[in-house]
Amino acid sequence: MFGFLLSFIPRAVSQGIPLMFGAVGETITEKSGNLNLGTAGIMYVGGICGVIGSFLYETRTGIENMNAFLGILIPLVCCLLGSLIMGLIYCFLTVTLRANQNVTGLAMTTFGVGFGNFFGGSLIKLSGADVPSIALSRTSQFFSAKLPFAKDLGWFGQIFLSYSFLAYTAVAMAIIASVVIFHTKLGLQLRAVGESPSTADAAGINVTRYKYFATCIGAMVSGLGGLYYVMDYASGVWSNDAFGDRGWLAIALVIFTIWRPAHSIWASILFGGLYILHIFIPSGTNLAIKELYQMAPYVVTIIVLIFTSLRNKRENQPPASLGLSYFREDR
């Protein structure tokens, strides 16, 4: 049993990290009242932009001459830029032009997935690989570098210290987001914008600015999830559509954690575990039930939704104006 946990937990964690980024980013966004269903697309764009950056760097300099610092910085900046632009597009459409948030978000997801697959396909062609994927193994080595002494610490090292820097960044992001949202003036004002923009406006808070900033920061955080997935989890291998439904899982996580970023730390690891549970089905069972196992995170989310609406505690409800656009002179 212990041996099983020892191999299961680290896999669940690395499966959960992209979800954690996505959920924290989406929570920040939703706290401003923007329901960004484009998160799935943004994570895709974050991933592919990182891939483009590192592909260009790898092919220009050659694998031998790559600098570890630049090898991390270039994909990171590309990823952040890509997801920032996605966040800006979303904000421009929904905040400035007051387009419907659901429609815009779904369009962003479709766009992001298409964008990723298009450039992914182009790069695969460029690299001339035989398989429909592109491997950035050197960059991946930089990204997945682990603490050198983790191996010597036995089970403790394996469960807690065997991850790359992005994984710890995700945890840090979740904690920082939680502190800022619930314990600072900035967070109070952000929550006010998401609960009731007209109230926030009457209190002298610049609603548009808060919505833009929260959504763009949220998008960049989410985008990192895509980068982590390609560079660390998938060992630098990009293949089209491999990212799958993780973006939606991240959105489900936001509901599961009842809009509390700190909870997404354990919750995303739980989801990650549920997501890969099917790998641990005892051999010999019918593989058709694998899909049923993969359903588990969504089932859990639905159960949480049922419980939070049954208990109907006001603090556990979504931001009151989530999904609504705001116009001061609306009558």
Binding site: R191, E195, S196, A200, A203, R314, E315, A320
Partner: peptide
């Protein structure tokens, strides 16, 4: 002080 109060319920 508006007719429809500008207050946030959960705060």
């Amino acid at each position: 002080i508006h007719q429809h109060f500008k207050l946030i319920d959960v705060l």
